[in-house]
Design a protein around this nucleic acid. Structure first.
Lengths: 276, 276
DNA sequence: GAATAATTCTCAATTATTGAGATGTCAATT
DNA sequence: AATTGACATCTCAATAATTGAGAATTATTC
């Protein structure tokens, strides 16, 4: 139960067999390493037999893998396949790629592309100018919404209903001295962000890390995602970052425009080229 | 129903609510683009009501996303998060990374890292020397096993039971003139591969593409994955590729050795560093 | 090798799933 | 505009699958 990975407990009880099964899946993902059945059952609120049965079912269906030797279960490779599809069709990353590349070549700083998922920030792409890109290693990571630049930038442009739901899922854990730890403080900041059009993170999540972030909004102002540029406190200050906001906003606009056209292509020819 | 994406129909009937739900998930993934409910229901063998209910359930749980305007469902972003975990803990990619980088810098050719999943080849990493790396865009892709280098390299070193199951899932669709289109031909090739220790793909999947591939085997000869180097027919021939086999095998050995140590770390400190 | 923990199995009661059809909703067409 | 047809959602009683406590089995620890 690491503070970071605080994924709001999904409803594991009541009706809904599939919901419960997916809950097990989440528990395994939260544990984040191969886990024993007993451990998983302890983390769940379900009776022994049920959990063991679910583990078998999920394993049979490839959602989990099972190492009989060590007697551990872990997230199965089948999900990697599903994720490929997910990432391609349900994330902004493919659409944003060219625009982010362009941005990266200009600003030469770490850029994150993120979306909201279940009240948390889901990073779908990351550009780090010096090192090449690390594959999934950053895409797929989740982070808190209330204390990150992208998180706040996105929350600020959420509809009333959506915002309420996301707010309810924030833990307000104090990561640093600057972390906003109350709904009131956060809402105040969100109002400001909405007004000026971008968010800042002043070491609220991690000491020494500051960033600016802008939302990515569709033409009809629907929130699509967020985009941030990160810097190390000391090496750069907010005055430097502020200068980047216009170009970031322009990038966001371009991404949104492309997203409108590309998000639901009628025919999606799978990139033919593939090795062997 | 593209020929490429021929994923064997999973059991959608009989007992097993979760199985059926996951089947729906697969159907959506197979379609590969946002799909209407009716389309999904048609692809399934389940009655209307059931499918619609599953779609709602899966959407509620974030496995699918739903665009009410266009009335389409598509794979949800939540899977991207799960996949991050999957990729990290259930794929060879993180472990293999350094070794593949080393290999890439020496051979300067396209390298694929793959694993077997449900009878198909699941690519978990790809190194393309010239362009940097494209994120998920290649990881997560699936390909046929019977007509690709890695696929055959892996099949050749499968246990009897495992091989039977994988064989049963091959479509033997003829992609090119060289494609092996019968179990017999394939088995003969597998015997040869087992003997000499590596596989070749002589334009069996795609015209003009040739490759060599080696299996990645644990110390106790358990199949972990496969590794291939691709070339364009004409620019290079097999004599060139054969020269690479030793270094590939050495890389495979190193990966296997690391995998034994790293695959199930007791404590897995999530890479702390993460933007904002 | 005994003791303890972890996992699998058993089985009747229960309850959630089912699915055919009726109802509601949207979009295109005449 | 109004009608049509396709699509999506909802209803509800019968059914069949899930459930879960506990026993039996298997591994692991001391």
């Amino acid at each position: 139960m690491a503070k970071q990975t605080q994924v709001t407990q999904r409803e594991l009880d009541g009706p809904g067999t599939v919901g419960r099964a997916l809950g097990i899946l989440d528990i395994v993902a939260d544990i984040g390493r191969p886990a024993r059945a007993s451990e998983i059952q302890a983390a769940s609120s379900l009776p022994k037999g049920t959990v063991y049965r679910f583990l078998q079912t999920l394993t049979d269906h490839g959602m989990l893998s099972h190492d009989p030797h060590r007697r551990v279960y872990f997230i199965g490779a089948r999900l990697v396949r599903l994720a490929h599809v997910a990432w391609k069709q349900s994330s902004l990353a493919p659409v944003a790629k060219t625009h982010l590349d362009a941005l990266a070549s200009q600003v030469r700083q770490t850029i994150h592309l993120a979306q909201l998922d279940g009240g948390h920030v889901l990073y779908v792409d990351k550009l780090f100018p010096s090192r090449p890109v690390e594959m999934f290693s950053s895409a797929g990571k989740v982070g808190p919404a209330y204390c990150t630049g992208v998180g706040k930038a996105m929350m600020a442009f959420l509809g009333e209903d959506g915002l309420a739901s996301v707010m309810a899922q924030q833990s307000f854990y104090r990561f640093t001295d600057n972390t906003l730890t109350s709904p009131e403080a956060l809402l105040a900041d969100l109002a400001l962000i909405r007004k000026r059009g971008f968010a800042i993170d002043n070491e609220e999540h991690e000491r020494g890390i500051i960033c600016v972030a802008v939302p990515i909004l569709s033409r009809n102002r629907i929130l699509l995602g967020g985009l941030s540029i990160t810097a190390l406190q000391g090496r750069q200050d907010f005055d430097d970052l502020y200068k980047l906001v216009p170009i970031m906003q322009e990038t966001a606009t371009r991404i949104a425009a492309d997203a409108a056209d590309w998000r639901y292509p009628e025919i999606d020819i799978e990139t033919k080229e593939l090795g062997t």
